[in-house]
Write a protein that binds this DNA or RNA. Structure first.
Length: 627
RNA sequence: GGGGGCGUAGCUCAAUCGGUUAGAGUGCCGGCCUGUCACGCCGGAGGUUACGGGUUCGAUUCCCGCCGCCCUCGCCA
């Protein structure tokens, strides 16, 4: 098969050359004595021309071709007459005068059409994925994905990283997402689990002295799917020895900058319309924001800074003395009151739309959502009458409100509820204001996360990232752990209080976690790890993990750390989600070659499915039907 | 696990209040056409209305169940 070119590569400069191309019949246009066939391959389409007078045999062969037949064509590339040029085709200046047409295979009529703007049930696309992947947008996506990974490898190889594979047959981890488990034949009743991430192995690589590890790692989580979730997905997983936070951040910034540049410079993607192509170069260093600032201004730890001017205002102190009971009670009872100033939007929402906002807020647990229009120096709206003049003025001043603005205010005894509602509102308002341009890339590092979360119901501290993350104020943490150890009476937090540490002080501790956020999506997250067992045990002490538990759950890691673990840290980036943003895709399914449906099935090969009873017997497994 | 939406020709969708032979566009098959490129024109085939049950003289339409897909809350680093 002496293919000389790909169909879509042929241009004016090939005129006069004898070429051979192969591909699929895209469309056929019969004009009696003339037949035209657009032959398609991954590079694009090219027109094949047949003339009955010049070559009756090939003309007849062309007539017998049908859509999606596979063919080989040889002939001379000739310039088209100027009036016959097709400016919509990259190869539109030329055509091939075919002197040899060979049928390589016939094809059944596909269930879905091979066209760029295909609009059909996603179920069909998944069922006939090999046809769906013939479509140019899908092929470009896969090429873009490959280009991104190639660029990542190049960046990391240049920085002295070693690509290392870690096991897929892993071990069940009780916390975190549900595991997929794999029964062992050799040990009936025992199971492997598929890794949720290679976290522990990459740390072991550091202990091994491998210095700089990376992997395009497949991760598995058996949770319910979403538009941006799949049961198996890929991460760029990185771990480095003898580094601090700034080293990891700087490294990843370089990687991201490089692959964005490489995608932008690749001519194959010039006409894809992808946001990344339009986005321009990203500026490094990338902006930083503390967790505290993110929560204060945006009520979310992954703020979408395309709408950075839409900041929230905390009104809790103001509300404590205000005249409106719903606000006052929430504020006085340890809750929170926050407002979103919607600039110039006093009339932007209809009554019904405001009603929908209130319904959303209630759906998230709030009692309601207050909306107030800002008139010339005063407020208007259902609850405006509850606020005397002075309170109205102080509210307007706090929110920096202007006439014509709309204020949305949420109050609740639980901060969590207020944050959820206000983040939702901010997103809706940003959308309505047209601020969420997918071709705008707003990157931000969120840093200084809390070390612990406190669950009141259990009166217990939890590590907010994972318990292997290095605290920032290590001395303080060690002192606290020591204080907690002095007694075994009551909860950890009670013991800390008895030793003179306040809850605020404990919750004010920060860790060495860092998340990279792009347009409100967390695309990468990592941390500097604890590399000493004594430090590790201090943190375990504070989150109430006993020595025995630690030994049972993380024994092999603790043992490894005790054998000379270097200071180390790393980060992992979600490839599929990153691709969604780069390419402006709506679902994660469109960012990978062979995705599962939202119910976790592969509709093409039809799995999961039952296996033979004999196999189950061999594994010592008996299926128990649901009651 | 909860809530919602969808399922009619290969595909995208119609079908009045429950009423005649379930239509259109596109694709497919065949014919005509010497410059088309979403070619055009003519003709044709193609339906267990997802599946199962119920109400009714009569069900694509109403009710129940079930399967599948999609969204969402829970869940998920």
């Amino acid at each position: 098969m002496t293919r000389t070119h790909r169909c879509g590569e042929l241009r004016r400069e090939h005129a006069g050359q004898n070429v051979t191309v192969c591909g699929w019949v895209d469309t056929k246009r019969e004009m009696g004595a003339l037949v035209f066939i657009d032959l398609r391959d991954i590079a694009g389409k090219v027109q094949l021309a047949f003339d009955i007078e010049k070559d009756p045999a090939n003309h007849a062969a062309a007539k017998s071709m049908h859509g999606e037949y596979v063919a080989l064509a040889s002939g001379v590339v000739r310039l088209r007459d100027p009036k016959n040029v097709n400016p919509r085709l990259a190869t539109g200046d030329i055509e091939i005068a075919v002197s040899r047409l060979e049928l390589l295979n016939t094809a059944k009529t596909p269930a879905i059409e091979v066209r760029d703007d295909l609009k059909c049930d996603p179920e069909l696309r998944l069922k006939h994925r090999f046809i769906d992947l013939r479509r140019q947008p899908m092929q470009r996506m896969l090429q873009g994905r490959a280009a991104m990974i190639r660029s990542m490898r190049a960046s990391l190889d240049a920085q002295g990283f070693t690509e290392i594979e870690t096991p897929i047959l892993y071990k069940r981890t009780p916390e975190g997402a549900r595991d997929f488990i794999v029964p062992s034949r050799a040990y009936p009743g025992q199971f492997y689990a598929l890794p949720q991430s290679p976290q522990l192995f990459k740390q072991l690589c550091m202990v091994a002295g491998l210095d700089r590890y990376y992997q395009i790692a497949r991760c598995f989580r058996d949770e319910d799917k979403r538009a941006d979730r799949q049961p198996e997905f890929s991460q760029l997983d990185i771990e480095m020895s003898f580094v601090e936070r700034e080293d990891v951040i700087a490294l990843l910034e370089g990687v991201v900058r490089n692959f964005m540049r490489d995608l932008q410079q690749d001519v194959r993607f010039a006409h894809t319309g992808w946001p990344v192509v339009k986005a321009g170069e990203i500026k490094t260093p990338i902006e930083r924001m503390t967790y505290e600032t993110a929560m204060r201004d945006y009520s979310i730890d992954r703020p979408d800074l395309r709408s950075r001017e839409l900041k929230l205002t905390e009104l809790t102190d103001w509300a404590k003395t205000c005249s409106f009971n719903a606000f006052k009670q929430a504020a006085a009872g340890g809750g929170m009151v926050k407002a979103l100033r919607c600039p110039g939007m006093a009339e932007a929402f209809s009554r019904g739309q405001i009603g929908n906002l209130e319904r959303d807020a209630k759906g998230m647990g709030a009692g309601g959502l207050a909306s107030l229009k800002v008139l010339d120096g005063k407020l208007d709206g259902a609850i405006a009458k509850f606020f005397p003049e002075a309170e109205q003025q102080s509210l307007l001043a706090a929110c920096k409100a202007q006439p014509g603005d709309l204020l949305l205010i949420c109050a609740h005894a639980k901060e969590k509820v207020v944050h959820a509602v206000m983040h939702h509102m901010r997103t809706l308002v940003a959308e309505k204001l047209g601020l969420l341009d997918p071709a705008k890339f707003a990157l931000v590092w969120v840093i200084d996360f809390p070390l612990f979360e406190f669950k009141e119901e259990e009166e217990k501290l939890y590590a907010s990232h994972h318990p292997f993350t290095l605290p920032q104020d290590l001395d303080l943490v060690r002192n606290m752990a020591q204080a907690a150890r002095r007694s075994s009476e009551g909860s950890v937090i009670a013991r800390l209080k008895a030793a003179g540490y306040s809850l605020e002080q404990v919750l004010g501790l920060r860790n060495n976690q860092y998340d990279l956020v792009l347009n409100g999506v967390e695309i990468a997250g990592g941390s500097i790890r604890m590399h000493r067992t004594d430090w590790q045990q201090d943190v375990f002490e504070l989150v109430g993990i006993t020595k025995e538990e630690a030994e049972k759950k993380f024994g092999f890691l603790m043992n490894a750390l005790a054998h000379g673990a270097p200071p180390h840290g790393g980060i992992a980036m979600g490839l599929d989600r990153m691709l969604m943003l780069l390419m402006g895709l709506d679902t994660i399914q469109d960012a990978m070659a062979f995705p599962k449906s939202a119910t976790g099935r592969d509709l093409m090969i039809d799995t999961p499915n039952e296996v033979e009873k004999k196999l189950l017997d061999e594994l010592g497994i008996q299926f128990k039907p649901a009651p």
